[in-house]
Nucleic acid binder design. Structure first.
Length: 263
DNA sequence: ACCCCTGTTCGGCG
DNA sequence: CCGCCGAACAGGGG
């Protein structure tokens, strides 16, 4: 599920455990979600206190006492949730962090997600990234114009999916942005005019903000009239004037657009 | 049975 | 070397 708004919502699920110590861990170190990670070193988390967390795009970082850090990416099917203290891990619960009165659970059936561990006084190298959050002031016209210029040959849909430019944007948000900006997803980025770039920038900010205010806040539905409510159905129509949507693979992903609105 | 999937990485190729 | 594209990863759901 997770794009930036869902990631933010999932991150907050574990907030109830802040300030409490970890009394036990349940994980299988050889699972694919731990690829590239020394999962055995995670035993160091036992006894540590969960302090706080932060999200950047689709990535999350959880900080614990004792200079220990946990990075989580939800991939395609990852979720975070809270269960009671006596919770028994189910098939795809790859990490269960036990506190005295609850269990913090990471589940991911497809295992495209990832768990990383770091021990050190400073945040890990893999957390450092100068890509600005879309809702931040650093994400401005100058910055994104520079990014668009560097990928002029790619279809704009593919560029919206690049995490080093549009941090946290995924398939449905990219389609939502292009529909609102009235730009065909297959357009080469270098072909966009000044007005189109301005629209793209404005709608990127808008979709990110509104998604965080709905999905990100309490997992409520994005506003009525958004493309997301139509895009999955074969018979989906444009929310504006009921024109049947078109579908194709662009940038390697299924893409939906309105042939009347988008040029 | 068959096809589809809100993500990322990697090898091949132009 | 740069950059784009398709395949692969793995499992569940329609």
């Amino acid at each position: 599920m997770p794009e930036l708004a869902e990631v933010e919502w999932y991150r907050k699920q574990w907030d109830v455990g802040r300030g409490d110590a970890i009394v036990d861990l349940a994980l299988h170190a050889r699972k694919r979600v731990f690829r590239g990670t020394n999962a055995r070193a995670m035993q160091r988390l036992i006894g540590a206190k969960f302090l706080n967390s932060e999200a950047r795009g689709k990535r999350m970082l959880f900080k614990f006492s004792g200079d220990t850090w946990l990075g989580i990416h939800l991939g395609m099917t990852g979720t975070l949730r809270v269960e009671s203290a006596d919770y028994r891990a189910a098939k795809h619960d790859h990490l269960v962090i036990r506190q005295r009165t609850r269990a913090l659970v990471f589940r991911d059936s497809r295992q495209f997600g990832r768990v990383r561990f770091h021990h050190g006084a400073d945040a890990p190298n893999w957390w450092r990234d100068e890509t600005p959050e879309i809702v931040s002031a650093q994400f401005n016209r100058r910055w994104i114009d520079n990014f668009l210029d560097r990928h002029g040959k790619a279809p704009i849909k593919a560029v919206l999916l690049m995490q080093h430019g549009f941090s946290g944007i995924g398939n449905w948000m990219a389609d939502e942005i292009l529909w609102r900006a009235r730009i065909l997803p297959s357009r080469r980025t270098m072909s966009l005019g000044l007005n189109e770039r301005a629209n793209l920038f404005r709608e990127t900010k808008f979709v990110a903000r509104r998604s965080l205010a709905t999905l990100g806040k309490n997992y409520s539905e994005p506003p009525r009239g958004w493309l997301i409510h139509e895009r999955w159905s074969r018979s989906g129509v444009c929310p504006k004037h009921r024109t049947p949507l078109r579908h194709a693979t662009i940038g390697g992903r299924t893409t939906a657009w309105c042939p009347r609105c988008q040029m």
